[in-house]
Amino acid sequence: MKKDLMDILACPICKGDLVLNITKEDEKEIISGTLYCSKCNEYFPITDGIPNMLPPELRE
């Protein structure tokens, strides 16, 4: 995902702000990492450049 996606993303549970933690990126985008909601204490993983913003019960 591109970094500027952070401007429009929010926690799918509480709509609060997210904290980005990058573990791998290239010149174009973030490849892996997490988005963390401190209010819900929930991590949303970024895998192969795709943020998974599904609430845990839909994630499978």
Binding site: M1, K2, L5, I8, L9, A10, P12, K15, D17, D48, G49, I50, P51, N52, M53, L54, P55, L58
Partner: peptide, 18 residues
């Protein structure tokens, strides 16, 4: 994503700030 679309796994509008 392979087709160069900036995609988010989400349920409809669930991932967007208000």
């Amino acid at each position: 994503k392979r087709n160069s679309v900036e995609v988010i796994r989400a349920d409809m509008f669930g991932c967007f700030g208000s």
